[in-house]
């Protein structure tokens, strides 16, 4: 796993994806920080985090698009799958490399916190709570992106399909609004990534939601492993 993780980290920077991702992330989060937090004259960072949901939704596919599809296209997967490593090693090596980059990106909020601390009092509980909420959301989204990347050889198709999939997850709330059946409505709402994430930004640290995001990450990584395994048995 270590070898694959290190190679992917290098590849992020060699290919330039890391720079694009970090730049866009920093610019947009900086904008929301300025408008939502500094501009409104408050030290509460929640507006920043709630605005970032959509940004993450569109940025994470850029991070994950090439992880599996590039291997397939260049036939380098043949090297990985015939090396003495397990399928989970391959998937998790790639998964954690993307997650690491995501953590680097979102850690920018601590610089914002530093700026806030200069201007006034930072509410550290909300900041840290939101930081972890974003981390959990990211870990689920990355797993989804990685899974979709394993389904295609085409990076662009992978990126677009991932954005679409994440967008559909985002729309769960509005689906629920149109459903009259109470049980079904609650079921859809309970699967909503957005409402669970927004809960955090409202100051509620909900353990079931943490479990939900981590389970989603596990399930999609598991699917990716199955895709690799199925190829072998196909």
């Amino acid at each position: 796993m270590g070898a694959i993780y290190r190679r992917e980290m290098n590849a992020f920077f060699i290919s330039g994806v890391a720079y694009v991702f970090l730049t866009v992330f920093f610019i947009l989060s900086g904008y929301f920080f300025y408008v939502g937090v500094i501009g409104s004259g408050r030290t509460d960072t929640s507006p920043l985090f709630s605005s970032m949901f959509l940004i993450i939704l569109f940025l994470i596919p850029i991070l994950t698009m090439r992880l599996m599809s590039e291997e397939k296209k260049n036939r380098t997967d043949q090297g990985l799958l015939t090396a003495p490593v397990g399928l989970w090693d391959i998937v998790l090596g790639k998964y954690f490399s993307a997650l690491t980059l995501f953590i680097i990106a979102e850690s920018i909020v601590f610089i914002y916190a530093g700026i806030l601390a200069y201007l006034g009092d930072v509410v550290w509980q909300t900041l840290i709570g939101n930081y972890f909420a974003m981390l959990f959301l990211g870990s689920a989204f990355i797993a989804v992106g990685l899974f979709i990347s394993s389904l295609t050889e085409n990076q662009m198709a992978s990126a677009v399909a991932s954005m679409l999939a994440l967008f559909v997850l985002y729309l769960f709330d509005s689906f629920a609004g149109n459903v009259s059946n109470e049980t079904l409505k609650n079921l859809i709402l309970s699967l909503s990534f957005y409402s669970r994430y927004i809960e955090f930004t409202q100051g509620i640290f909900s353990l079931p939601s943490v479990v939900f995001f981590l389970s989603a990450a596990f399930i999609f990584n598991f699917f990716t492993v199955r895709v690799l395994d199925k190829k072998r048995w196909g």
């Binding site: 590849a11 060699i14 043949q78 090297g79 090396a83 003495p84």
Partner: peptide, 30 residues
């Protein structure tokens, strides 16, 4: 698999890497 060295029809090369870093990666991978 640890007993096998395999050269497939299309060599599984990461074309963005230098030979040295690629072989180091393979060294770690194996």
């Amino acid at each position: 698999k640890s007993f096998i060295g395999y050269l497939p029809e299309i060599p599984p090369l990461y074309i963005d890497m230098t030979i040295e870093s690629y072989l180091n990666f393979v060294y770690d991978l194996k």
